[in-house]
């Protein structure tokens, strides 16, 4: 479903991604862990082309962007529709209700029929447990509720892949569970997901594969049970020791 080949990203002189090769199969949930500055968020943002890779190739569902050449804006925006992004700080549109947030993409970007979109948006919000909050503005919602609207908003574009950038890091501890539950449901429905997170419990319970990144490289990858109980690499061990 997702294939990354030789992905590099440089910010001026600082090289954040130093050649990432990765394949994620359809329906798989991949959790990316690693110390801050390891490049995991940049990796995710590159898959959504919020950052333009300096070199390398990204393929999603048979569409490919090759960043060795320059890529047109149009190609980028159609490529972005393949992925749904969930942000650490939710980034809901504050001037729209929960329903408005979820409807915005299908209406503006895809130009879909308003009634159909409305129906689907209501269903999505019910699915994330917010069927009774359709007309609430983001400021009237808790962090956990806002993030669930964020997930529904990303799903409304019917993406092939969902990307989560530390979706629970900005939440109060008691609100983390409700967001993770929605994510687990999504995983069990067969959504392909790449999740950057510090929630090791989530990784253990929901991930098919855990990837450990450090210094712009993928250091180690494997099943959660293997990575967490029996890591091969020294740096993975150090990192896991520090957070446990």
């Amino acid at each position: 479903m997702i294939t990354l080949k030789g992905l590099h990203k440089k910010f001026d002189e600082l090289e954040v991604l130093k050649g990432i090769d990765l394949q994620v199969d359809r329906g798989k949930v991949v959790v990316v862990i690693g110390p801050s500055g390891s490049g995991k968020t940049t990796l995710l943002r590159c898959i959504n082309v919020l950052e333009t890779p300096t070199a390398g190739e990204i393929s999603i569902d048979n569409q490919t962007l090759d960043f060795t050449d320059s890529v047109s804006k149009k190609a980028i925006s159609s490529f972005r529709r393949l992925t749904g992004m969930v942000f650490q700080s939710y980034n809901l549109f504050p001037h729209m209700t929960a329903l408005g947030n979820v409807m915005e993409g299908p209406l503006t970007v895809k130009g879909e029929n308003k009634e159909a979109v409305r129906k689907r948006a209501e269903e999505l919000l019910s699915k994330v447990g917010l069927g009774d909050k359709l007309d609430y503005y983001p400021f009237q919602l808790s962090g956990g509720q806002q993030q669930r609207v964020g997930i529904a908003r990303a799903l409304a574009m019917e993406p092939k892949v969902m990307l989560f950038d530390e979706p629970t890091s900005a939440l109060d501890p008691e609100l983390v569970g409700e967001v993770l539950k929605v994510m687990k449901n999504l995983a069990s429905e067969g959504m392909t997901m790449v999740v950057v997170t510090h929630e090791m419990r989530f990784a253990e319970e929901a991930a098919d594969e855990v990837i450990f990144m450090d210094g712009g490289h993928i250091i180690e990858r494997g099943a959660p049970s293997q990575i967490f109980t029996n890591p091969k690499e020294e740096r993975t061990k150090q990192f896991l020791n520090m957070i446990q």
Binding site: K73, R80, M85, F87, N91, H95, V109, R153, A154, M157
Partner: peptide
């Protein structure tokens, strides 16, 4: 906030759509 631009771009909005629907209203 920059996150508003990113949220719009991430769902495939163009610059013009973002301005009209997200940025200028705010």
């Amino acid at each position: 906030p920059k996150g508003q631009w990113e949220a719009g771009y991430s769902m495939g909005m163009s610059y013009q759509q973002l301005l009209k629907r997200i940025i200028l209203p705010q």
